[in-house]
């Protein structure tokens, strides 16, 4: 099941400059694991050293923040769009 993941500009260094990539999985955790295989370095940027999603990283499935769903165990289905959105900070190109 291929899911579209929207990647913010500061992370596009690890996706070869792409703002959107495809990933496979049925939960957010599986999606990120798949992304790490194809885009090494992604995980260390969005997870803290203790393995938690960094506090300022917000993950959305379509319009829903996963903190209000089942966090990284939130289910995704074909056609969903996942967005990785950092908290408001200075911008990027």
């Amino acid at each position: 099941m291929a899911i579209t993941v929207r990647v913010p500009t500061p992370l596009q260094k690890v996706t070869g400059g792409k703002g959107e990539v495809s990933a496979v999985g049925s939960t957010i955790r599986e999606i990120f694991a798949d992304m790490e295989k194809n885009h090494p370095g992604l995980k260390e940027r969005i997870y803290s050293e203790d393995g938690e999603l960094r506090r300022f990283i917000n993950i959305y499935i379509n319009e829903e923040d996963i903190r209000f769903l089942e966090s990284e165990d939130s289910k995704v289905k074909d056609g969903d769009v996942i967005s990785i959105i950092p908290a408001i900070a200075g911008g990027t190109h």
Binding site: P8, P10, R55, I57, P86, I88, A89, G90, T92, H93
Partner: peptide, 19 residues
Amino acid sequence: EPAEPLHGIEGLKHMDTSI
């Protein structure tokens, strides 16, 4: 300055990767 391009320090810019 924030140490990384992807950061959560509100209002601050990582200049090398920003406008």
